[in-house]
Design a protein around this nucleic acid. Structure first.
Lengths: 246, 246
DNA sequence: GCAAGTACACTGGTCAGACCAGTAGCCTGA
DNA sequence: TCAGGCTACTGGTCTGACCAGTGTACTTGC
């Protein structure tokens, strides 16, 4: 005979559960409104502070948003990767997850995205990629920031062409965290224009592989590009984590 | 001239920022204690409800834990993937993500985990995998639930051997969500023992590839095993999403 | 009739004070 | 020495209050 350990369940947690269930199950759709706090406290039969703590938790999870003065009540938000981004960022800043692991993960995700994109891409995807690459060439002349924006757009186009929202979101999150970790080093990079030229070359190659529907090649090129551009910021003894992916 | 939009900053958010900064920067180490709520309200110069809402947010982010009655105050927790797990779970349950996408993502993650595990595995990893496989064989005789447990353990051992905590967590989360989506169908499966035998065969093959340090083979086998076992639950017209990974 | 402006009811954010169940650690008595 | 009880204090919850700010409906001016 085995018993489960029990933990006291706080009132606010029960409220969070109920509302979260209603949101993720789709019974409450994005844009819809929750009753106001005073109404919720009668519906749940608790005090306002309890209701508020529940709403705080839901708000921190990016499920709802409440603004003072709005008589329509708290708004149910569309699912967004913001919470995922935050928790991954926190985890990354904590120990156990360094740049090496992040970069490795990004090589995995980006590589797979390229693989899938190359095999599932439509003509629309290809032309979107063409324009993205053109924008990168233009951005390279204007400045590093514009170039970065265009670069991000290119990667997002690839991810979208993979037809997998989880891949899109994860890749986006990991890319963001990686960039945050090295943006200071990147901004001190000596020869930015050489950097941008190198990236442009990589991207053009990748695009050709995608156009040729050669998934393996596109994936390998993408991973290689990440390695070439970022490995120098990874401590030397950890680069062994990355090389198996090349 | 461009101005940034401003959002009013709530008092509790400032408190969250300060404490979070102290935690992630390492100024507050896991196991250490925060002052009690009444003490915090004097330090921050706010009311107790404000302090509590801040603590709720931090608690939802798995940064602290507070228990009533403990005179030492709220405890700072070690960084854990629990929050990441929750947010990814929520995102995956949200719409736009069906079984096909989940399975595709899982094939990507598991495949990469196997690839890395095969190339980075130590002898300890190999013996852990051996015992996991033995446990699966034993579990197959006892019942489906024991078998499932052992199967999960095998996958987790692989993931850990990949040396990437992000991969471990993501794979675990996606596996959990996939299982949630099809557990009812799985429990109605006609011939469970044949199912278990098939899985056992797949795992043994994979293990040999890992032992031989053949990453490509291990990855391909792992993806193929997932496809063979789960593709039947994916609507036919969406299986095209999965085949590029085989 | 309609647009601009205003008043108001109500929202969420915050505070103060209170009560309760439950805990950690001390303190007592054997 | 140690089991058992005591107590001061914890976090969880409730009530009631005030405020700045908002959306709506109404009024005003044209």
């Amino acid at each position: 005979m085995k018993f489960e350990p029990v933990a006291p369940v706080r009132a606010y947690e029960r409220i969070v559960e109920q509302i979260e269930e209603a949101v993720v199950s789709g019974r409450l759709k994005p844009g819809e409104r929750l009753p106001g706090e005073r109404e919720l406290m009668t519906q749940f039969g608790v005090g306002r502070s309890t209701v508020r703590e529940a709403l705080r938790v839901l708000q921190a999870a990016e499920l709802i948003r409440s603004r003072p003065g709005d008589p329509r009540g708290p708004e149910v938000l569309a699912a967004s990767p913001a919470a995922l981004h935050r928790s991954m960022h926190r985890l990354a800043r904590a120990d156990h997850v360094g740049l090496a692991e992040l970069l490795q993960f990004r090589m995995v995700l980006d590589g797979s995205a390229h693989l899938l994109a190359a095999q599932l891409r439509t003509d629309d995807d290809l032309s979107a990629l063409d324009t993205a690459l053109v924008a990168m060439r233009a951005g390279a002349k204007e400045g590093f920031e514009q170039f970065s924006h265009a670069d991000v757009a290119f990667h997002e186009t690839i991810a979208r062409a993979s037809r997998n929202p989880l891949l899109v979101v994860s890749a986006e999150v990991v890319r963001g965290v990686v960039l945050e970790l090295i943006e200071d080093k990147l901004s001190h990079a000596r020869d930015r224009s050489a950097l941008m030229q190198s990236w442009l070359g990589h991207h053009a190659e990748v695009l050709e592989a995608v156009r040729a529907a050669d998934g393996e090649l596109a994936a390998r090129l993408a991973r290689r590009a990440l390695y070439d551009n970022y490995a120098e910021y990874v401590p030397e003894e950890q680069r062994a984590l990355l090389t198996p992916l090349l």
